[in-house]
Computed example of a mutant assay.
Amino acid sequence: MSSRTETLERGLAQVAEDLLAEDRLVRAVASGRRRTGTPPWRRVELRWVDLKAGRHLQVVRYDATQAHTSNHLLGDAARAEVEGLLAEPFGNWTVETTAHLLSLRVTKKGDAALHTSTRQAPVQASAEHDRAKDRMLAEDDPLFAALGLSDAQGRIKPTRRAKYRQVEDFLRILDRSVTDAIAKGHVRTPTTEDPLRVVDLGCGNGYLTFAAQRFLTERRGLPVRLTGVDVKEQSRDHNSAVAAELGIEATFVAGTIGEAVLPERPDVVLALHACDTATDDALARAVEWEAPLVLAAPCCHHDIAAQLRRGTPPAPYQAMVRDGILRERFADTLTDALRALLLRGRGYRVDVMEFVDSAHTPRNTLLRAVRTGAATTPEEYDDLVATWDLHPRLGELLGR
């Protein structure tokens, strides 16, 4: 991997060269904002597609609620579209080609911080205009049949559509997070001799565990060493059988999150729907391991909700916890806010984001933590727990 700083003009010129290379662009994403302005779209994705009228640059713009797709013919039309997008004040560009990954971040000074890494195994660029090609993992992937999500014809079962959507949305977040973390040097570039070490704490029956391994290896071409941990022996046996059936190199162990022993420090820690304080156990282990990247989707927040129910709320906030449903929702928000503050105090940059649309599952919050080493002061955390007289599990585990 190489890193350097260029003028913004030269950096964007390199991005433009990759975007307009219709034979080698796999996908590109623009996101974020600059100090000098905010782009009109939350996110933009680009790839080349073959339509009846010829090859086009497909641009998908995302606002707060939906996606807007447009197609631009190879040549002047595509070039004009690229020039227009590069003129918008996006703070980040991530570009995947058949041979390399390129990340551009606009610095506070207005320069371009460029990070480039060569793919371990070259991939093919596909320009087929097929909605299935936009999937992170195709419906007919053998993984979904092995997990019981698809039928014998490779179609996702109607009753499992929500789970498939959850898998797809998670993989999009994982894809962006791993790409960005490697490009910026927070996560090392894996090699065949030293694969990306991924551990899933509280992996259950492994839907998202296996999907992560499948996507990172098959779609991204990254070597991965996967470990799943769950307290249930049934989960270990089930997941080991699925891995053997699919020929996936993975290790599953039965035991508590707090007692899990790994041979090497993980690069990526997943904790997806670990119930209640099990999420705190997972986050504490990630901090203990100094894991560079953590993705945690909390499930249930009974601990803080029970403390709010037993305690005396500070004035004038009694109305926020008087009614059960409001107390539960407030506990959800407060718990994850406290977790984010604790992780920031341990040197992590934390994003609290939507995991999957709430229409598909109420468990739709995800904490993404990237270890940067820049720790914040803990006063805000101390003030919150003192005000509400709380004793968060993660705080106890981290000695707060």
Rank of each mutant, 00 (worst) to 15 (best):
S3Q: 15
E6I: 00
T36S: 14
G37C: 11
T38R: 01
E45Q: 12
L46I: 12
R47L: 09
V49S: 08
A64H: 12
T69Q: 07
L74C: 15
A77L: 13
L101T: 14
K108D: 13
S126C: 11
A145K: 03
A146L: 05
L171A: 02
L174E: 10
S177M: 06
T179P: 10
K184F: 12
T189Y: 14
D194R: 08
V198L: 10
Y207P: 08
F210I: 04
R225K: 08
R236K: 00
S240G: 10
A243V: 09
A244P: 08
A244N: 01
G247C: 13
A250K: 07
V253Q: 05
G255A: 08
L262M: 02
E264Y: 00
E264D: 03
P266A: 01
D267F: 01
V268N: 00
T277N: 03
D280T: 00
W289F: 14
W289G: 04
P298L: 13
P298K: 10
H302L: 12
V321M: 06
T335Q: 03
D336P: 10
A337D: 04
A337K: 02
A340G: 00
G347Y: 06
S358W: 13
A359P: 05
R363N: 12
L366A: 12
L366H: 07
R368N: 02
T377F: 13
P378A: 04
L384V: 07
P392A: 00
